[in-house]
Structure formats: structure tokens, C-alpha cells
Design a protein around this nucleic acid. Structure first.
Length: 574
DNA sequence: ACGATTCGCGCG
DNA sequence: AAAGCGCGCGAATCGT
């Protein structure tokens, strides 16, 4: 059963029961927020799917009131998928003129203030926009159901929409719960690396020392190591030939200034990206509450807004510490993208290489290449479109051993070079290139009177760029789908784990008493769990990976191996 | 003075 | 070691 929910113009909530085609089975009910909460809790007994416009705007209100739901359908996210998908390209939804449903990803009215966001604003705040007429949402839902039903792959699309919507619920829940963060440990780490905290704008002691040494070794008392051009000029004056100040270029050089400079760059990065200012801004009551943006990346991966949650450096992961009596279960899908590629292309040889073992090691064991590093760099090259270097040299050997897998990436690349879209396992299609791309291609056609050699070169290079994008899209996007299914399954099973105690489904202090997801990083999750349940959580996470594999690829025999660890702090994992 | 762009680097 | 994909963010620098 579906329950359509939304807000009316005057702050009331509307709930409409719908049948499987999106038609109402009972009149809409107008409810106060308190009534709405009661309705949600009561309805959860029947495991409905909540249909609403935007999970990221409505669900935080429920979470703040202590209410969770199990299943959802996010109209905004699902619209974006169906609008673009090659599987639904002839549907009314895809062919209609652009509407408000095409306004793009989560147009946030204002940047969230870290200290006054969803966790404490409650629902008295009127800053939220009102949902427009519910008719509109219902009509959109019906268009979506129709588009899916008429598509060539309704089963896959249904799974994709369910997974995307589950992701939206999880994203809101993870932001609400937050990642356990120990500011004392973080502060000690910063002090050990940088020296005692100083006022913003000043260099901590260690950085100041290093800056002094750099100036001394370069014989330039003025040079500012924070200024790239300043630094580049000073390095060139010291006789070093280089075109940038990138760390990997510096590493190749022999000069007494290089070592302190590399150290300076590392520490300056730590200070500016995850220093005391970051800590004060983003850690609230021992929790890091990043804002996740499901569907924020073209391929279907998540993005985040603020805090750089998806770039948490290994350096500071020691500050992610489980509460007393709790543990972190950290799980990482091993060589996810190559495994996805093997399954996508039904390449049984590649799947066999990864059966029960590190896939790169399996490639070595099959005699395709000599070392694990070679296997890895060659695989990445195949998925990213490398042509030169080590990776380019190894590719032919990989192609001989795994013709189906490599054939799939090549086909995807050729499609992109022609300006065509490619589609993931569950039905997310890549965007078409823009007008300027098409214009450049047309311009370079041989028969075009104005075309020059330079035009042609530029067009070919641009076509190859787009080919590398589509080549990667199909793998990265399908891997993102697997990860969504994995996480949705973990969430579902965690809920069953806590159910037997006679709790009310919609209302339970999950985030203080029961295992729950607290972090997601493309192919990695963290569950915060009471220590006594950690073993069961590990089993759930492993089982969920196998289930996700079956959901996407049926019986195709590819393993999705995980590295799983139960730890007290994030840096203890792998 | 201030918004947009570039560089460099963190993550997968 | 680093080029081939996808990102976000901060500081310096550019452009107005």
C-alpha cells in the first residue's frame, strides 16, 4: 500500500492512501503535525510505502520527533532517474515539457548553518517551503508508475527507485544520528602534529618552523609557502625546473627544501581542511552531522554538502570513536568496481578470479599479470580509459584474458564518443553531451567546409573525453546501485534485529539504543552498535552484500567480498 | 571589495 | 610512480 504525504499551504499535513496504480482508495485526510506523527506511527504497522516529494525536507521533521519509517518513494529523486533513463524515454514523464519536477537536485534555500540545522530546529520553524497541491504529487506519482510499468525493464527500475528512495531515508537518518566523534582525541592529534592551537590566521608552531626552514633552504627570506606562484618562482630561482608545485612533482626533485616543503603541505592541508576550525564548525555534542546528498553525482553516487564528509582523511579517523559499551562495525566492499564489471558483462573468467579471494590476487594467480599492483593498475585503466603508461601497456593482456569485461567497457566508450547515452544495470542513463560538444563534433566533420585540422583534433580529443566518461559511468553507476541495495538491506535487517522486543515499529529510540548506520563512503559503511550485538551486525552486513548481488545480477556467480572489522575507532579498521 | 576561477589535494 | 573516472573544499588569484 502507498501513502502519499505532504504539507498543505497552511502547515497542515495531508495523507492519502493510494492503490498500486496511484489512485486514492480513501479520501485525503488533513492533519496537524501531532496527528500526522500519530498517523505515521500507526500506519507503520502495515509496512506502507510513503510517497512524498522530497525526503530531505520532510523526513528530518519526523526524525526530530522520534519517528522513523521503513519504506519510501522519493518523487523528486525518482523523477530525475525516469526523466533521463533510456528505458523510459518514450514515456509521458520523459517527453513532457520541463516542469517543477525538473528543477534539479535539492535546491537548498539557504546554506545550512551547522549549529542550527535540522537536529535542533524542530518543526516550529517556518523556513520550510510548503508543498504545492497534493494533486500534483499524486499525478506525478502516477506518471512514474506508468513509465515504469511500460518500460522494457520494470523490475530493474522498481528496484532502482526503491533503492534510491531507501538511500534518501538512510541519508536523513545518518545526518540525524551523526558519526561519533571525539573532539579530545582530535585536538590531541592536531596538537601533536601542528603544535598548540593558535588564533585563526596564524601559523601553529610546527608550520612556522617548517616555513622558516623552507625559506632558509631556498635562500629567500620572503617566500610564502601558501602561495603557489610565489613558491614556484622561488623554486625555479633555486635552480629547480618544474611547472607546478604539486606534491608528486616535488617528490621527484633533489633539494634540501623539498622535504620540509612536503611536510609543510601535508600539515597545512590538515589544518585548513580538518583543523580546529573544522572541528568547532562540524562537531556538535560528540557527533559529526554531514549533509548527504543522494543522487548528487551524475553516476548516482552520493555527494555531501559541507564538512567534506566523503574526504575524511585517514589522518583524523582515529577521532571517530564508538561510545562506551558500543562498537563500530566497519565494512568495505573489496574491489567493488571490477566485480561489478565482471557481473555486468557476465565475464565468468573474471568472476572466477575473484571467487573467495582478492580479485587482483586472483588475476595474478591466473597468470594474466605478474603482480597485484599490475593487476590493479590495469583494471583501473580499463575502467577509466587509460591509454598510456604502465596501465596502457598492460591492457592488451587483460583484454585477452577477459574479453567480455573489456569488451563492455570499450562498447560503452564508443557509445560516448558518438554522443550516445549508456545505462547502468538498473536503468540509470548517462546525460547526453551538451550543445557545444555536439557543435564541435559537427564542425569537425570532414565534409564541413570550415573544418580545419585543429578543429578535427579538438573534436576527436573531446569525443574521447566523453567516451571515458561513459566508459566509467556504466561501472561507477552500477556499483553505486549495488551499494544502495547493500545499505538498504543492512538497514532492513538491523531493524528486524531490534524488533522482537515488542517495540512500536515507527517509534523507537534507535539512535541511542540500537545498531544503526552512521557513515557511508561509496563502497564502505559504518554501523554504530552496542558491543553485544556487534557479531550479529557483522553477519548482517555480510549477508546484505550477497543479497545485493542477487538483486542486481540474479544467479550470476560473482562474489562480493567484504573486509569487515569490529573496532573502537575508525583508524583501527584495515 | 567581492564573486568566479584555478590550483592542489583529500576521498572512492 | 601516476594517468585514465567521479566528487568537495579551502586558499590564492583573477576579473570586474
Amino acid at each position: 500500500m502507498y501513502l502519499l504525504a505532504g504539507r498543505t499551504g497552511n502547515g497542515e499535513f495531508l495523507v492519502v492512501p493510494l492503490d498500486s496504480t496511484g489512485l486514492e482508495t480513501a479520501p485525503a485526510r488533513r492533519l496537524s503535525f501531532a496527528e500526522f506523527l500519530g498517523e505515521v506511527v500507526a500506519a507503520e504497522q502495515g509496512l506502507p510505502r510513503w510517497v512524498w516529494e522530497d525526503t530531505s525536507r520532510l523526513y528530518p521533521l519526523l526524525l526530530a520527533a522520534g519517528v522513523r519509517v521503513q519504506r519510501g518513494h522519493d518523487l523528486r529523486l525518482c523523477h530525475a532517474i525516469l526523466r533521463q533513463s533510456a528505458l523510459t524515454s518514450t514515456s509521458e514523464l520523459a517527453t513532457a515539457a520541463p516542469s517543477r519536477w525538473d528543477s534539479g537536485p535539492a535546491a537548498q534555500p539557504e546554506a545550512p548553518e551547522p549549529h542550527s540545522t535540522l537536529f535542533d530546529l524542530g518543526f516550529a520553524d517556518d523556513g520550510l517551503d510548503e508543498d504545492p497541491a497534493e494533486d500534483d504529487a499524486q499525478a506525478e506519482f502516477r506518471r512514474q508508475l506508468t513509465a515504469v510499468a511500460a518500460s522494457a525493464e520494470p523490475g530493474r527500475l522498481r528496484l532502482l527507485l526503491a533503492a534510491e528512495s531507501a538511500g534518501a531515508l538512510i541519508a536523513a537518518e545518518m545526518q540525524f544520528a551523526g558519526l561519533p566523534w571525539c573532539t579530545e582525541v582530535h585536538d590531541r592529534l592536531l596538537t601533536r602534529e601542528l603544535g598548540p592551537r593558535v588564533a585563526p590566521g596564524l601559523r601553529p608552531e610546527r608550520l612556522e618552523d617548517l616555513a622558516r626552514r623552507i625559506r632558509l633552504e631556498l635562500g629567500d627570506p620572503q617566500v610564502n609557502p601558501d602561495s603557489q606562484q610565489d613558491l614556484l618562482r622561488a623554486l625555479q630561482r633555486a635552480g629547480l625546473t618544474m611547472s607546478s608545485t604539486r606534491a608528486w612533482e616535488l617528490q621527484k626533485l633533489e633539494h634540501p627544501a623539498i622535504a620540509p616543503l612536503l611536510e609543510y603541505k601535508k600539515l597545512a592541508r590538515l589544518l585548513s581542511a580538518n583543523g580546529w576550525y573544522w572541528m568547532d564548525t562540524w562537531i556538535v555534542d560528540g557527533r559529526f552531522h554531514p549533509e548527504y546528498v543522494p543522487g548528487g553525482v551524475v553516476t548516482g553516487r552520493w555527494a555531501t554538502r559541507g564538512g567534506g564528509a566523503l574526504q575524511l582523511p585517514r589522518q583524523v579517523r582515529g577521532a571517530v570513536i564508538a561510545d562506551d559499551g558500543w562498537k563500530l562495525v566497519v565494512a568495505d566492499a573489496a574491489q567493488l568496481e571490477p566485480r561489478i564489471l565482471a557481473a555486468l558483462s557476465a565475464d565468468t573468467a573474471m568472476a572466477t578470479a575473484g571467487r573467495g579471494t582478492d580479485l587482483y590476487a586472483g588475476i595474478v594467480a591466473s597468470g594474466v599479470v605478474e603482480t597485484r599492483d599490475h593487476a590493479k593498475v590495469a583494471m583501473l585503466g580499463a575502467m577509466y580509459g587509460a591509454t598510456t603508461g604502465e596501465s596502457g601497456r598492460l591492457l592488451p593482456r587483460l583484454a585477452r584474458a577477459y574479453p567480455r569485461a573489456l569488451g563492455l567497457t570499450e562498447t560503452a566508450a564508443r557509445a560516448g564518443e558518438r554522443g550516445e547515452a549508456v545505462t547502468t544495470r538498473l536503468g540509470r542513463s548517462s546525460p547526453r553531451p551538451g550543445e557545444s560538444w555536439l557543435a564541435t563534433q559537427a564542425q569537425a566533420q570532414a565534409y564541413h567546409p570550415g573544418a580545419t585540422d585543429a578543429d578535427e583534433r579538438r573534436a576527436r580529443s573531446q569525443a574521447r573525453d566523453w567516451g571515458r566518461f561513459t566508459r566509467n559511468f556504466i561501472v561507477q553507476g552500477s556499483a553505486a546501485e549495488w551499494a544502495l541495495c547493500w545499505m538498504a538491506e543492512i538497514r532492513r535487517e538491523l531493524r528486524l534485529l531490534q524488533a522482537p522486543e515488542g517495540t512500536v515499529p515507527g517509534r523507537s529510540p534507535v539512535f541511542t539504543h540500537a545498531p544503526h548506520l552512521v557513515f557511508f563512503l561509496h563502497d564502505e559503511v559504518i554501523v554504530h552498535t552496542p558491543a553485544g550485538l556487534a557479531e550479529e551486525v557483522e553477519q548482517i552486513v555480510v549477508r546484505a552484500a550477497a543479497t545485493a548481488g542477487r538483486h542486481l545480477f540474479g544467479d550470476f556467480p560473482v562474489d562480493f567480498l567484504l573486509t569487515v572489522a569490529t573496532v573502537d575507532s575508525y583508524d583501527q579498521a584495515k
